[in-house]
Computed example of a mutant assay.
Amino acid sequence: MALVTFLSDFGDKDYYVPAVKAKMLAINPQLNIIDISHNIETFDLAHAAFILRATFRDFPKGTVHLVAMNTTGNMTQGYIGVKLEEHVFIGPNNGILSLLADQDPGILVQFADIHLKDTSFPAKDILAPIAAKVASGAAIHDFGGPLTNFRKLMPRNPKATREQIIGHVMRVDRYGNLITNIRKEVFDQLNPGRFSIEFGRESLDRLNSGCDQVEPGDCFAYFNSLGLLEIGINHGHGGNLLGLKFESVVYINFNP
């Protein structure tokens, strides 16, 4: 299956997204191009990485993922292809691809100069042709050699002891719900049966199965489909009402 996903911060009001798609379809009109999102906050690598990490494993193995974030930024050190968990990612070497999993990719390729152009639109002129050709059967090794300077960004990880987990808000979604980096498996390993979840000025001593398990206006906390602790206010914007945002601290205190 010639399947390409496309993630960017281009929005949907300009010509950028259709231009990139047109470039890929000109190479292979049979490509199936799936938009993950083009409404990523501009230049926000953490937002883009969160969305891609949360979704890429749901696509068939062998899918090519085109990542167009900060492709002309000062952080970008060339353009690369990586293979991770039998998925292929094509994008800039600016650290975003280091945030997709806890382990390093199995294959790292630096695209050779012959495939690069002097352009103000590298997503269209550099990355799109390579993504289309890889999705059509080429190998990422066909476009360069081993990458030796894989740029990495350090994710913010929770701290856990027998008494407490200290985590952070990683994403405030469009409903105002706050998705944290506290994982269910860590909570389950440490939970003695009694606990309190503290965020902002609120505290909860129980988990819900979903946001609709509390009355409108009440706070909830549950582990979502990603296995991450999510908190908020039913029928309310939790981020605004609780005064929480990206990187706000969330505590789970264990009571033996």
Rank of each mutant, 00 (worst) to 15 (best):
89 F>G: 11
69 M>L: 15
101 A>E: 15
100 L>V: 01
68 A>E: 05
52 L>W: 14
110 Q>H: 02
107 I>L: 13
59 F>I: 12
95 G>N: 00
82 V>T: 15
69 M>P: 00
78 G>A: 02
67 V>K: 12
75 M>C: 02
78 G>P: 15
111 F>R: 12
54 A>N: 13
104 D>L: 07
80 I>A: 03
84 L>C: 12
64 V>T: 03
73 G>H: 01
68 A>T: 10
90 I>T: 05
89 F>A: 10
111 F>G: 06
90 I>R: 11
99 L>I: 01
107 I>D: 02
69 M>H: 09
71 T>M: 08
51 I>M: 06
81 G>H: 12
62 G>Q: 09
90 I>G: 03
67 V>H: 05
109 V>N: 06
70 N>R: 15
74 N>R: 15
102 D>H: 01
78 G>L: 00
70 N>D: 15
101 A>C: 14
50 F>E: 01
111 F>N: 10
104 D>M: 04
72 T>A: 05
104 D>S: 04
85 E>T: 00
90 I>M: 05
101 A>F: 04
85 E>K: 10
88 V>P: 05
51 I>D: 01
99 L>H: 04
107 I>K: 15
82 V>H: 12
77 Q>D: 14
83 K>F: 03
55 T>N: 09
49 A>M: 11
99 L>N: 05
92 P>D: 02
58 D>S: 13
55 T>A: 09
89 F>W: 08
82 V>W: 09
83 K>H: 08
61 K>G: 02
105 P>C: 04
106 G>M: 02
69 M>V: 14
79 Y>R: 05
68 A>G: 07
100 L>R: 09
88 V>Q: 05
70 N>A: 09
94 N>T: 00
64 V>H: 09
55 T>V: 06
63 T>G: 02
103 Q>W: 07
58 D>C: 03
99 L>D: 03
64 V>N: 01
108 L>S: 13
106 G>Y: 01
96 I>T: 08
95 G>I: 01
106 G>Q: 11
51 I>S: 03
101 A>M: 10
66 L>V: 05
67 V>G: 07
92 P>T: 02
88 V>H: 04
77 Q>P: 14
90 I>S: 02
53 R>M: 10
101 A>S: 15
84 L>M: 15
81 G>A: 14
53 R>G: 07
109 V>C: 06
88 V>K: 07
93 N>R: 05
49 A>I: 05
82 V>S: 10
109 V>M: 07
84 L>G: 11
53 R>D: 06
54 A>Y: 05
100 L>A: 08
93 N>K: 07
57 R>V: 08
93 N>Q: 03
55 T>W: 04
97 L>T: 10
52 L>T: 11
97 L>Y: 10
61 K>V: 12
88 V>F: 06
100 L>G: 03
75 M>V: 03
72 T>W: 00
74 N>W: 08
105 P>R: 01
111 F>I: 11
73 G>V: 00
79 Y>D: 00
59 F>D: 05
66 L>E: 05
61 K>W: 08
83 K>V: 12
62 G>T: 04
81 G>M: 14
96 I>K: 09
84 L>K: 13
99 L>Y: 04
50 F>R: 12
96 I>Q: 04
108 L>N: 10
101 A>N: 15
71 T>C: 08
103 Q>P: 00
80 I>R: 07
56 F>V: 02
